[in-house]
Design a protein around this nucleic acid. Structure first.
Lengths: 207, 207
DNA sequence: CGACGGCTTGACGCTAATCAATATACGTGG
DNA sequence: CCACGTATATTGATTAGCGTCAAGCCGTCG
């Protein structure tokens, strides 16, 4: 993996790594910081499709498509590993195992997409937010950062867009979780107080 | 492509091709008929993730995952081309071009997934149904069957599940389209009378 | 012909969107 | 460093849209 990294770069909050439609030039891995991926429909409708954190690899679908299908913007100052397309092509040609790794990453994308599908198709507002928090918590835990404190870098509006809601609804759901003792929240700092409670909420029959 | 097909089989309406979790054994291509793909969450929640028609290749994500992530059930008697896993592996090892084709199919899956994401996240009921009809129409047209008559093989319930709605809402939307002169509908036979009208509906600002 | 599953339509209620008013945090320039 | 202006967040009031419950119809299949 390390031989793929040509260099690491620092980028500022709000910078755009690439836009939907851009030819595939680099794969990025986040060393520190976080990003959002957003798709924009022809009519201006937009939706946040992903929230990327430390350790995530960004832009994998472009390896095969040849172009990016989403725009990625940093949510804070970031440090990124840059893996140029040529190196990736070269290695995947040489190493069948690496080719399989790439396919694995792609497949994970698909499976992840299915999860989101269920969420948007069947869950109600509070369930979506609870699922979002638990997913984020789990991803941080997998990186070894098993603190119950999260710092959200996205605005309420971005979280809302990601969950198919409005920012007011997200805000209200946060407040409700807080007053129910499920979380502690102050601005963008969230502390999960009762993971099981949140899990129960997600699994509750919606109807 | 043809050398991949080991045989063609006929299956009856309601048969299951494979279940979520099954090891990848075959890729299927639909010669005639149609199928639905469904995922089931641990708590029994289910969602139709795809509606496959003539010409579609089914189960691509399993090539890389090694197992299927959805259950596929036929909606009518079908004739299917069966492409065994070994042949696919063998050819993709031998032929880099084919490997790329496979990746292309996967990438299409991802892009298609993004479209659904926007639909479930941002559209209201009638927009979702209109988008569904237009998509289906376009897919049939691409197969050369450019008639404006569609025969839906899914029940209202299945369509509803696919769109993240209830069957009553789907039924009402159909009725509304009919009385607005956008479509003609009788049971599962749909005729698109005003594609532009439907398109305008999809692109209407929801707020 | 009867029974059953699927479809339509109506009445009603709940959830989340919308509109609106503050409150808070944040960034910028003086 | 403070003051101001602007983005973000919270909360309330109201409403639209869709889900739920229920009744009746249609079409199919045994």
């Amino acid at each position: 993996m390390n031989e793929l990294v040509a260099r690491t770069v620092r980028v500022r909050k709000g910078d755009t790594l690439f836009r939907a439609g851009d030819a595939f030039a680099n794969l990025y891995a986040i060393r520190t910081g976080s990003c959002k991926a957003v798709i924009v429909a022809p009519d201006g409708q937009y939706q946040i499709t992903a929230y990327h954190i430390e350790g995530d690899v960004i832009g994998v679908e472009a390896v095969f498509l040849g172009a990016h299908d989403a725009t990625v913007v940093t949510l804070e100052d970031c440090e990124l590993s840059v893996m140029p397309a040529e190196r990736i092509d070269a290695l995947s040609r040489r190493d069948a195992g690496f080719q399989r790794d790439l396919n694995g990453l792609l497949s994970q994308l698909i499976v992840g997409g299915r999860k989101v599908l269920l969420m948007l198709g069947k869950m109600r507002a509070e369930q979506r937010l609870a699922a979002f928090l638990l997913d984020l918590d789990e991803r941080y835990a997998r990186r070894g950062q098993s603190s119950s404190d999260l710092v959200l870098r996205m605005t309420r509006q971005d979280i809302a867009s990601h969950l198919g809601l409005t920012h007011e609804t997200v805000s209200r759901a946060f407040s409700r979780f807080h007053q129910d003792g499920l979380i502690h929240i102050h601005g963008r700092e969230v502390q999960l107080l009762d993971r099981d409670g949140l899990r129960r909420l997600v699994e509750t029959e919606p109807q």
